[in-house]
Amino acid sequence: MIARSASLLPQSALGHLGWLRGALGATIGIGVAALFTQLLLGANTAGLPWLVAPLGASAVLVFAVPASPLAQPWSVIGGNLISAAIGIGFGLGLGLGSAALAASLAVGTAIAVMIYARCLHPPGGACALLCALGASTQGWDFGHLWPILANVLALSFVGWFYNNLTGHQWPHHVELPKSGNTSAPVGHTRRDIEEVLTDWNEVLDVDVDDLDAFYQALERHVAKRRARPR
């Protein structure tokens, strides 16, 4: 709910999370990934893709919403690679005559494995689909994981460098203030937040620690406002 409301707010070009910062980061990230993969492949460039389309979606997450749990390094690297391997496995196993079945099974299995491995990453579903179809119809094999590995490693390196350079700690984490340093009593615990989320039975695109930090900051802000002379 918080993430959904925030996404509706207009963003300026500059500022804490301006659109220009994200757009420039994605431009650099995709460019570096392309050059690095071409350099790594060398003479094999003609036989292997030097950029895969799901990387564009990964770039949106890494540079536009770097605090999202779906945009963290393990999600980007693990989510894409695990899904790609699953896609190729189903594509090779089921063959040309069952391309549609391979694609559907690959995406479903990739989602389950990513959730279990705690690396859920939406572009991973696209990677599974791409690789299942590539293995079913274009002769792709597990050697095609090399350019995908190069892509996600290069993008993650640029994400780490660029996000930290522009004031966004990546990998993202929050440091919660100690209770003794707060100017207002904290009326909740982290477990309270977890239990409410469990009651809702929904997954929000925001980490529990971020919710905790937000609520603590909100309490301090309200306490300061109430303490101001009227």
Rank of each mutant, 00 (worst) to 15 (best):
G95Y: 03
A59Y: 07
C119M: 12
A84V: 13
A46M: 03
I88T: 15
A128V: 11
A132P: 09
S98L: 13
I82M: 13
L92N: 13
E175S: 15
W170G: 04
A126L: 05
N80L: 04
L51W: 01
N164G: 06
L120N: 03
L48W: 14
A102N: 07
T109V: 09
W50R: 02
F161Y: 08
A67I: 02
I82T: 13
N44H: 13
V174S: 11
G134F: 07
G167V: 10
G87S: 08
Q138L: 15
L130Y: 06
G108F: 03
M114K: 11
G89Q: 05
G56L: 10
V107M: 14
N44M: 06
C119L: 00
I82H: 00
Y162L: 00
A117Q: 06
L96F: 05
G79I: 06
L130D: 06
T166C: 12
A117C: 12
A67W: 03
V158K: 02
A117S: 10
A106N: 10
M114P: 05
A112Q: 07
S104A: 15
F142N: 06
G134D: 09
H168Y: 07
S68L: 04
P69Q: 02
E175Q: 13
L105G: 15
A43F: 06
G159A: 06
W160S: 08
G91W: 02
A46C: 05
L92A: 11
A43N: 11
T166D: 03
S98D: 11
L94T: 12
P147V: 13
L70Y: 10
V65A: 08
Q72M: 02
A46I: 07
L48M: 15
V107K: 10
I148T: 03
F142S: 07
G79L: 03
P122T: 01
L55A: 01
A112G: 06
